[in-house]
Simulated scan of single mutants.
Amino acid sequence: MKVSVVIPTKNPGRIFRDVLDRVLAQDCPWPYEVLVIDSGSSDGTQDYARAKPGVRLHEIAPEDFGHGRTRNLGASLTTSEYVAFLTHDALPVDNAWLRALVGALEQDPSIAGAFGRHVAYPDASPFTKRDLEVHFDRFSRQPPVVSRKTDPQRYETDQGWRQFLHFYSDNNSCLRRSVWETLPYPDVEFAEDQIWAHRMIEAGYAKAYAPDAVVYHSHDYGVFERFQRSFDESNAFRVLFGYRLNARPVRAFLSIGYLAKRDLAFAWRNRISPFATLKRLSLDVASVSGQMVGAHAPRLPGSLRLSLSRDKRLQRSLPVTTPRWSAEEH
């Protein structure tokens, strides 16, 4: 078997049916299989997957799920040369998605993993569409295959470049089994994909960007949801990578000002309604504020950390103390 597509699921709703149907309709010159790992869905997901020819369903208990752990399980249950991962709400845009993803890996045997582009669902807000476009365009402006050897001096001195190198999204990705066998995913509750990418870059492997392997994947969050997600991300990045995002109040204030100016200009150019614009400005404040508070999470009482978190399991798994390595503020 050339490729195994592994999709972890937990109550994804109807969108998963479109995802699974699109994956099964991929136009590929080689055989591939689909493995769904469900952790206790009660919305008919298991029955739908079970009824599809060519799909294997593996069920686990909800408490056994882990972002890295479950993906390792998926890889271990397959024997293909490559293992592709999708989340249950990431819908391939076309029937060439898998071919493009694998093609990015096959450019060079030193490439350990490849990730594809995300675009917003058609009903997403104009700001969400713009954010995803800007985010992934920066990868199109760099070489499609990068490693430590791309710019060794910059890797040693530029933290922003190192962050760029270890960005990796297993919402839409594919890895080389031979590399995974020596470098499996870490068993963590957050950023398992970026930690894995950091480790394989450090080990000397390369990473590929597949701009033609496109999925619809986006979320429009409420204001408090955005604060919570930013708090979780900032606290986790503090622990995992030593980054302190918008830790200083002055820096946070300047960041909010920059985002507000950018989004007001975007709203004016695109004639976005005052209500939608006001919501976006509120989301800017929530995002930066969540990062600032998350950067100082060790100073907060445990009960408050949990109340500010969207992912309680993640917060319980993170150590309270500051990482041993030197942290830089942004």
Rank of each mutant, 00 (worst) to 15 (best):
Val93Tyr: 10
Asn270Glu: 13
Leu183Gln: 08
Ala247Glu: 13
Ser39Trp: 09
Pro62Cys: 09
Gln142Leu: 10
Ser287Ala: 14
Asn172Asp: 08
Pro29Gln: 01
Leu259Met: 13
Gly302Tyr: 01
Ile7Cys: 09
Glu106Phe: 06
Thr150His: 08
Pro126Phe: 06
Lys2Val: 11
Arg226Glu: 13
Leu240Ile: 15
Phe65Ala: 03
Ser125Thr: 13
Ala260Met: 12
Glu133Lys: 14
Ser326Ile: 14
Ser42His: 11
Ala265Trp: 08
Arg50Asp: 07
Gly103Pro: 04
Glu33Leu: 01
Arg154Leu: 12
Cys28Met: 06
Glu156Ile: 10
Leu306Lys: 02
Arg310Asn: 14
Leu283Ala: 10
Ile195Val: 15
Asp47Asn: 05
Ser39Thr: 05
Leu308Tyr: 00
His219Met: 10
His118Glu: 07
Pro92Asn: 06
Val146Cys: 02
Ala276Trp: 11
Arg154Ala: 12
Phe224His: 07
Val188Met: 11
Gly74Glu: 13
Ala260Ser: 14
Gly160Arg: 10
His67Glu: 15
Val83Tyr: 04
Val83Gln: 08
Asp151Ala: 12
Gly68Ile: 03
Val102Met: 07
Ala206Met: 00
Glu33Phe: 00
Ala236Ser: 08
Ser287Glu: 15
Ala84Phe: 05
Thr87Leu: 11
Leu86Lys: 01
Arg71Thr: 03
Cys174Ala: 15
Asp108Met: 05
Ala267Trp: 00
Ala90His: 03
Tyr205Cys: 00
Ser309Thr: 07
Ser303Thr: 12
Val288Trp: 11
His118Pro: 01
Gly44Cys: 08
Phe115Arg: 01
Leu73Asp: 03
Pro8Leu: 12
Asn172Arg: 08
Pro211Asp: 01
Phe224Ser: 09
Val285Glu: 05
Ile60Asp: 12
Gln315Phe: 03
Leu304Gln: 00
His219Cys: 10
Ala206His: 00
Ile201Cys: 02
Ala276Thr: 07
Ala104Gln: 03
Leu91Ser: 00
Ser41Gly: 09
Arg238Glu: 02
Leu300Asp: 03
Ala203Pro: 04
His135Arg: 11
Ala327Cys: 15
Val36Ile: 08
Gly103Thr: 05
Pro62Ala: 06
Ile195Thr: 02
Glu181Trp: 04
Leu259Trp: 05
His217Ile: 00
Ala295Lys: 12
His219Asn: 11
Asn171Thr: 13
Val288Pro: 01
Val214Asn: 09
Val215His: 05
Tyr168Gly: 06
Arg248Thr: 06
Val34Asn: 03
Ser282Met: 12
Met292Leu: 15
Thr277Asp: 07
